[in-house]
Simulated assay, not measured.
Amino acid sequence: MKNIGLYFGTFNPIHIGHLIIANHMVEYSDLDEIWMVVTPHNPFKKKNSLLDNHHRLDMVYLATEEYEKIQPSDIEFRLPQPNYTINTLAHISEKHPNYTFSLIMGEDNLKSLHKWKNYEAILEDYNVYVYPRVSEGIVENQFKNHKKIHRVDAPIVEVSSTMIRNAIKEEKNCKPLLPFKVWKYIDEMNFYKK
């Protein structure tokens, strides 16, 4: 049975940090594939700051097309909004009964996991793979020794989509922080310039 890691994000835009983490997770854990789940609306983010769903999905396709074990997913586009992770997990598990699904998240998200809708059910039925974040420090909470939480010693990448959007707005060269085809797409579409 394939073990699929679900890496949720608005990917506004997807950048090299996302790819480094996804690739490390699939190469250095027991995950067989990573699905980059493009989130149409994160309940904790303002919707008006997001590019249209199809543009963010297109960028994830462009960024992952050369990675055999990393796939884009628009599964949440067809679910009621705003959506919650527990709903997506139930839907995707029902749709793909021959796969095992796990969550991938940064240590910063682990700190707030107890605020997620039905987080207890998530931890009962799904494994969570956590990558470190320098700015957040070590999580010392109720999840420290949880049997479903697996810390992966992934490279620490301090690149953010917010930083990239701001750099583009300020007319800075951020080409090294983006997969080339994503940078080209953003440049040709004049995204994030205002």
Rank of each mutant, 00 (worst) to 15 (best):
K2H: 12
G5A: 04
L6T: 04
Y7I: 02
Y7D: 09
G9A: 00
T10E: 09
T10M: 13
F11R: 03
N12E: 12
P13Y: 04
I14M: 11
I16G: 04
H18M: 05
A22K: 06
N23S: 12
N23G: 04
M25W: 09
V26A: 01
S29W: 08
D30K: 07
W35V: 00
T39W: 03
H41C: 10
N42F: 15
N42A: 08
P43A: 00
K46Y: 06
K46E: 15
K46A: 14
D58F: 00
M59P: 15
L62N: 11
L62Q: 14
A63W: 06
E65F: 13
E65Q: 14
Y67I: 06
Y67Q: 06
I70T: 02
Q71N: 11
S73G: 09
D74F: 08
F77I: 07
L79H: 08
P80F: 00
N83K: 04
N83Q: 07
Y84I: 02
T85D: 02
I86T: 03
L89Y: 06
H91S: 11
H91Y: 15
I92A: 07
S93W: 01
H96A: 05
H96F: 03
H96K: 08
P97Y: 04
N98Y: 00
E107H: 05
S112R: 05
H114G: 07
K115L: 15
W116G: 02
K117N: 02
K117G: 00
A121S: 10
A121Q: 08
E124G: 00
E124Y: 01
Y126V: 02
V130Q: 08
Y131L: 09
Y131N: 09
P132C: 01
E136T: 09
E136P: 10
E136W: 09
F143Q: 04
F143M: 11
K144H: 14
N145Q: 14
D153H: 07
D153A: 01
V157T: 09
E158F: 01
E158I: 00
E158R: 05
V159I: 15
S160M: 10
S160D: 13
M163W: 12
I168V: 14
E170T: 01
C174P: 10
K175A: 08
K175I: 15
P176E: 04
L177S: 05
L178A: 04
L178D: 13
F180L: 09
F180I: 13
K181L: 15
Y185E: 05
D187A: 01
E188Y: 06
M189H: 12
F191A: 02
Y192Q: 11
